[in-house]
Write a protein that binds this DNA or RNA. Structure first.
Lengths: 316, 316
DNA sequence: TAATTTTACATAAGCACTTATATAAATACT
DNA sequence: AGTATTTATATAAGTGCTTATGTAAAATTA
């Protein structure tokens, strides 16, 4: 029982507000999912700044028809996020000319695929002929209530990226990527031991030459994730380890793609099972392990990694 | 150059917000114009309270899908305006049951024609078939930019009321209306003199029997305004005086309707001119006098009214 | 050239929402 | 019956806008 809908044209103002607020909130969730420090309400301003390369406060104000203090405040927010920089106008000392910063341009590149997907999905939802504005709103709200807007957008983006992800095997030129991808989470969560340094610096020596395998996720010719299968003991037991995804590419299910590939590979080798060691602070990783069928088993007192407090296995 | 429009589907969220905010603001202007102490954002809540006769905070919340604090705050606002009253639920002591107050019901009666007009105009603007939501928004915004929404609504209501207004001549049964209508503004702006009391209490004696005329504006069988033409001296000079409109019916151009009728009447009597005395604080009245062609002339030192500081005449 | 008006931007406070949290009463669980 | 959970409402603080106002520089006018 949606009272606002029952009011028809009379409730249009409140109705528009409700839909708008919903979409803003959901868009925020999408930005959060992809770890982008950006707010939906900043979108119109930031897009103008990005398009025009050098605008003033009042130029934005005229283009958007918000009040001038609203623009000033949003600009301050963009500046606080480090997305824009100012230059003083030489000819008119009152003016502050606004440009996207380097970080701003990087953020923009991350935002573009999201904006593209939003545009696509909204078109799917609203490019329909109808006999009134209210009917169009009904259609839109019905679609939004079936599946949340954020989920739809996130899935759409993940699917698109997923199609473009290619899994490749180790080559020497990827050694540096292997190091960089893994050192990031090691440094962030734990202390990097000398043994870590060795294994990450010389994967050829420590993994490949011992009969192990390293796979990489490649997106647009860029290495964005990795995982290794390392033999332990000499009974054909393999450990899944050194899984990492670039911070800029989290949220695209790249970890899951690597995991699926590793499992398929292990099965094709007729391995009886895979084991892995992890730590309970690595919640996202453990979520993936569980999702792909790994079950927690007791960890031996002298486990090979000091930092591990969880051992899991996947029996085929 | 409207950047938001240029963004198409991508800018939908911001776009909806903009249209919504515009309509809210304009609706506020309409309420202000008709001297109704009400806010557009209170509309959905107040309509539920009015329809259901006895609702709780959380029932409203479920019907509108706002957050519960939003409802509590709006209810407090409605209460502060005196539009609602509470009763405690006997069975469940947590609940506060909300009803419209007497003032609330009165306000509701004033709001209904406005809501009716808003619904009608929005239907005119949006009951059109189009191939996308954005196109519908374009149509709506184009129409809103041609003539402000508030002006359109106010004119529509004024026109409807104007058609229903009937001007009638003095009868004894209207004497009380003549008194009440005039005493209101006299008390509000000035001090009521004994002579005022006499003339307002006995219009028959002081105006009609001396060859004067009194007209009344009648709306739905209710007297809502008045004006008098009073002879002064014995050279056929008439003074336009005692013009008043009920506070509940201001904004409907009733004063202008009475003025037009008086002028037509004076012309039909072949009067050479009309004069009037007023005071500069009565800005709305003077606006009407000027609009209908009255010109300010020097006021005699011993004018008949202590409170007058302006004298005007309209020569035919 | 001096005085006035306009333009560009900033700051303060208010408003209608939000999230987070508190409190009391009713209901469900064991 | 006693305890935990849920429900109904209130309060506090934050957010993105608004209006109102201030300040400095530029443009216009006298």
């Amino acid at each position: 029982m949606d009272a606002l809908r029952g009011y028809g044209e009379l409730g249009l103002g409140s109705r528009l507000k409700r839909v708008s607020e919903y979409m803003m909130k959901e868009t925020q969730l999408v930005y959060n999912h992809f770890n982008i420090d950006f707010d939906p309400y900043l979108f119109p301003m930031f897009k103008i700044i990005a398009n025009k390369d050098g605008v003033t406060n009042s130029e934005i104000q005229r283009a958007l028809q918000f009040t001038q203090p609203a623009i000033t405040q949003s600009i301050n927010k963009l500046s606080a996020k480090g997305l824009i920089i100012y230059k003083d106008d030489k000819l008119d000392k009152r003016k502050k000319i606004i440009y996207p910063s380097n970080k701003g341009n990087k953020t923009l590149e991350k935002l573009k695929p999201i904006w593209k997907s939003i545009d696509k999905i909204i078109k799917e939802y609203t490019l329909e002929s109808s006999s009134s504005l209210i009917e169009h709103l009904n259609i839109l709200e019905n679609k939004l209530s079936k599946k949340s807007f954020s989920t739809t957008i996130i899935n759409d983006i993940q699917m698109k990226i997923s199609q473009d992800i290619e899994i490749v095997s180790f080559e020497n030129r990827y050694a540096k990527n292997f190091y960089n991808l893994n050192i990031e989470w090691l440094q962030r969560f734990f202390h990097v031991e000398p043994y870590d340094e060795s294994i990450l610096s010389k994967p050829e020596t420590y993994i490949i030459s011992k009969g192990g395998h390293i796979f990489f996720a490649k997106l647009n010719n860029q290495i964005v994730g990795t995982v290794a299968l390392m033999p332990i003991g000499n009974e054909g037991l393999f450990e899944l380890t050194k899984m990492a995804v670039s911070p800029e590419h989290r949220g695209f299910k790249i970890g899951q793609k690597l995991m699926q590939y590793s499992i398929d590979f292990a099965k094709s080798m007729n391995l009886p099972k895979l084991i892995l060691y992890s730590n309970s602070v690595l919640e996202n990783a453990i979520y993936i392990y569980r999702k792909y069928g790994f079950i927690e088993i007791p960890i031996e007192p002298n486990s090979p990694y000091k930092r591990s407090d969880i051992k899991m296995e996947l029996v085929f």
